[in-house]
Write a protein that binds this DNA or RNA. Structure first.
Length: 475
DNA sequence: CTGGGGATGGGGCCC
DNA sequence: AGGGCCCCATCCCCA
């Protein structure tokens, strides 16, 4: 067969026995041939699966048995790739896999996609499917889910804007190309995405808590919700963006994201000088709107509660709460709420002294006591034990620590800013701010207040106040 | 380059 | 449900 044309990726071949003199000529586009072949092959495999022909892999999902071909699973899922390659004998008769982190219905969607390229997503299952796909390491499915969510959010916003109440189909289908996707497809998902209806169903199963995110690597959910924040119609997308907005003090990047960033931990400059009040007001207003939108988004997000396939001694199922965005399950709803902050990056507890934000009050407390209150009765220099009397409090910006008399003398009193207080009730209210980096605030509470007022009271009483906003940037 | 320690984050669980 | 404590893992800094 002669190659008679090369049109990029697809080539045209002349049919056998046909010369260039013969008419009419029949041309074969190899791309079409490949697609047709792949479709046919996939159909055959799917048919074999449904007829349980040559199935050599048993997948048990919450008690329901699925049969499939290990080579297909191997080719489709990173999880199965790992599982099947780690097996004692790759040629053994059958391979078994058991899952209890997602439902049989969810795995049905996944398996159907594997064997057909059709991903049957709906507003009810997209989170579970994405979670399962994450577990199974199927990046293409994750991409489709992300695209689905993005499209859903678009529709939601437009629906709200126009105050229309259309009754839309609850399901849409994503179709992947056969075989491996291009990297572009992986990133953008299928180009023929039908905008689904409102993603979040308005049922009673709502999370009262704020959360968003997916997967143990939180960036996925950030990406899934990552739309153009400048788009005037993408309010909810913007809300989702806000959850990961590095400029938003309320929602900082998840720790893994920050740790991945260049230059390691960034030391912020607390209480930066406000040079432009107008800008500050605008920022404040925008931030307030963001917080409101985030709350609104939180209120519309579903949470998934499942009885995971564990049983206690009495064979009663143990109720656990499953994170919608990763495979983590917890016993208590409150723990799930707390866990979700690692996905959202929400840090509602800012330190009054340095503005660093924390996901938990106890972390803030620990930070404050360690960094700003010099509660540790240990000499910073020689590590010897000191008392509240013998351990002199030394200030370094908003940081405080204790040094023994010996070390104080060695270093030289003149070089060390000494705190006027000696005792455990030392408060940052009396910080000297020697480095000039951290100026302004001297409030004795742990948390930044909304109005950013600097209280004169610098007593030891800690004012616990959960703020929904702040005028400071990230640490 | 490496090990130790501090700071921080997250899970489990009790109150 | 929220607060708090304990424990452990990870990251970063520094000697």
């Amino acid at each position: 067969m002669d190659v008679v044309a090369d049109l990029g990726a697809s080539r045209l071949y002349r049919a056998p026995g046909e010369s260039s003199h013969q008419q009419p000529q029949r041309w074969f586009n190899t791309a079409d041939i490949t697609v047709a072949h792949q479709n046919n092959l996939l159909k055959q495999l799917n048919q074999q699966r449904r007829q349980e022909l040559f199935c050599d892999c048993n997948v048990l999902v919450e008690g329901q048995l699925f049969r499939a071909h290990r080579n297909v699973l191997f080719a489709s899922s990173g999880y199965f790739r790992m599982l099947l390659s780690q097996g004692p004998d790759g040629l053994s008769d059958s391979v078994n896999a058991t899952f209890d982190v997602f439902s049989p219905e969810t795995f049905t969607v996944i398996l159907d996609f594997i064997y057909s390229g059709q991903l049957d997503l709906s507003s009810h299952n997209v989170i579970e499917v994405m979670s399962a796909a994450s577990y199974l390491q199927m990046n293409n499915v994750i991409s489709y889910c992300k695209n689905f969510i993005k499209s859903s959010l678009d529709i939601s916003v437009k629906d709200e804007d126009s105050e229309r109440c259309h009754s839309l189909s609850e399901t849409c289908s994503f179709t992947s190309g056969t075989g491996e996707e291009t990297s572009e497809q992986q990133q953008q998902g299928p180009c023929s995405v039908s905008p689904p209806p409102a993603l979040w169903t308005r049922d009673n199963s709502r999370s009262q808590s704020g959360f968003m995110g997916k997967e143990s690597d939180q960036e996925t959910i950030a990406q899934s919700l990552n739309t153009n924040p400048n788009s005037p119609t993408d309010d909810i997308n913007a809300e989702a963006d806000d959850l990961q907005d590095p400029q938003d003090p309320l929602y900082t990047l998840p720790v893994t994201e920050r740790r991945r960033g260049k230059g390691g931990t960034k030391r912020r400059t607390p209480y930066s000088t406000r040079s432009n009040q107008h800008e500050d007001l605008a920022i404040e207003e925008a931030r307030s709107q963001k917080a409101e939108k985030a709350e609104e988004l939180y209120a519309t997000l579903p949470y998934i509660v499942g009885v995971i396939g564990h049983f206690n001694k009495d064979s009663n199922p143990i109720m656990r709460f499953k994170c919608p965005f990763c495979t983590h399950t917890v016993k208590r709803k409150a723990d799930l709420k707390r866990h979700l902050r690692c996905h959202t990056g929400e840090r509602p507890y800012p330190c009054q002294a340095c503005n660093k934000r924390f996901t938990r009050l106890e972390h803030l407390r620990s930070h404050f006591e360690t960094i700003h209150q010099a509660r540790k009765l240990v000499c910073r220099k020689c590590k010897c034990q000191v008392t509240e009397e013998t351990g002199h409090v030394v200030c370094e910006g908003t940081r405080r620590y204790r040094m023994c008399a010996t070390c104080i003398q060695e270093v030289g009193c003149d070089e060390i800013p000494m705190d006027s207080l000696e005792g455990t009730n030392d408060e940052p209210a009396l910080l000297l701010g020697v480095d000039g980096e951290e100026e302004g605030d001297t409030k004795g509470s742990w948390m930044v207040t909304d109005d950013d007022d600097l209280a004169e009271d610098s007593g030891a009483d800690l004012i616990i106040q959960q703020v929904d906003d702040s005028d400071e940037d990230l640490q």
